[in-house]
Amino acid sequence: MIRFSCRLARPRFVLDADFTCTDGCVALFGPSGSGKTTVAKLIAGLEHPDSGRIAVDDHVLVDTAAGIRKPVHQRRVGLVFQDGQLLPHLSVQQNLAYGRYFAPKEAQAIPFDAVVELLGIGHLLAARPATLSGGERQRVAIGRALLAAPRLLVMDEPLASLDAARKLEILPFIERLRDELSLPIVYVSHALEEVARLATIVVRMANGKVAAQGPPSEVFASPLPDNAMDRFEAVSFLSGTALRELPEYATTILDHPAGEITLPGRFGPKGKTVRIAIRATNVTLATEKPHGLSVRTALKGRVHAIAGGDGPLTLVTVELEGGDHVSASLTRLAVADLGLERGREVYALVKAVSIDERSIATLGGE
């Protein structure tokens, strides 16, 4: 469990944040300047608060009232940054061994071979960092952090410098850290799809404060008030089971009580549970089931709520058959023209190409 309550004042920025999270992947999410990296640095000991307390399980890292401030090397916080920061003159194996050097003798360290296998870097051990791809460097950086036997892993925008293909390559490895090692992770990012896929708890930061905290499905269900750009951050989460794969089209069909969901990519086998994140700006509503459209996904439901306000946009929440909810960002003009009101039967349309593969998580099943 992570307990964080700190205040830090700077000339043009004040952090005053308080949150408590259980184990899993805790995502610090928010725009640049919101304070998420500052929180990560405070946990790692790279910054020091004016006042506050930080604890990981029963280990107190900082308690200004009690005069406790453990130095970086005693916190056992593994750090992974954007660029990996590998030592260029050492091989991959030597970089990994460098991480082991910092593991306390009494710690139950993860075996070297287990880390290499977990991250799929056995074929890279003799290579130098300059010869690695961006995704390979990040996997080595994660391995080095794990071999230091951390109590907590802090990942500060670890995929920010990678292209889309490399991000898709490394995300499954971070999922394995979360699921197979049961190692608490603090994941700093402003990439909503990454957070949607990895996080068990989201701490949403804004202007140095915690604006929202909870499971991704709750935190991203509606935008923050008084900020028109936040409509791009309103996200719904739906889970379905793999019904069939269409390998000739590299497509998967999910079964959902409200209708079939078409996904780009192969996420079988049949019966596997798959969770997807859908941005409200990518949902269209229709009052009749459409025909003759390229859109494959049409989910049946009823209007549950329509956000108020006198601006040009509104957020319509639809309760789908089966009980899930999906949000659609619409103009108020469209709401009026369609005669949308609570209880009206509608179909939520989602283009498969609008679903980012980074946000698709496989959760189990057959």
Rank of each mutant, 00 (worst) to 15 (best):
E193P: 12
E193A: 15
E194A: 13
E194L: 10
V195T: 15
V195E: 10
A196S: 15
A196Q: 13
A196V: 11
L198P: 11
L198N: 14
L198W: 11
T200P: 01
I201T: 15
V203H: 13
V203R: 13
R204Y: 13
R204V: 01
R204K: 13
A206V: 05
V210F: 03
A211D: 04
A212I: 01
A212N: 04
A212E: 08
G214R: 06
S217Y: 12
E218R: 14
E218F: 07
V219C: 07
V219P: 11
F220L: 08
F220C: 02
F220Q: 02
F220S: 03
A221M: 11
P223D: 02
P223S: 04
P225H: 04
P225Q: 09
D226Y: 14
D226M: 12
D226G: 13
N227I: 01
N227P: 01
D230T: 06
D230G: 03
F232R: 03
F232A: 08
A234T: 08
V235N: 06
V235Y: 10
S236H: 04
F237Q: 03
L238H: 08
L238Q: 02
G240P: 02
T241H: 09
A242Q: 05
A242W: 00
E245M: 10
E245T: 09
L246D: 11
P247I: 04
E248D: 14
E248H: 08
Y249T: 00
A250C: 05
A250L: 10
T251G: 03
L254M: 05
L254F: 11
D255Q: 13
P257S: 06
A258D: 10
G259N: 08
G259V: 06
E260D: 12
E260S: 14
E260V: 03
I261F: 03
I261R: 08
T262H: 07
L263G: 05
P264C: 05
P264L: 04
R266G: 00
F267R: 10
G268I: 02
K272P: 00
K272H: 14
K272M: 13
K272D: 12
K272Y: 08
V274A: 06
R275V: 00
I276F: 07
R279I: 00
R279D: 00
A280V: 01
A280I: 02
A280F: 01
T281D: 06
T281E: 09
N282T: 05
N282A: 09
V283I: 05
V283D: 05
V283P: 04
T284D: 00
L285M: 00
L285P: 01
A286N: 06
E288I: 12
E288P: 02
K289D: 00
K289C: 08
K289E: 13
K289T: 07
H291A: 10
H291E: 14
H291N: 10
G292F: 09
S294W: 07
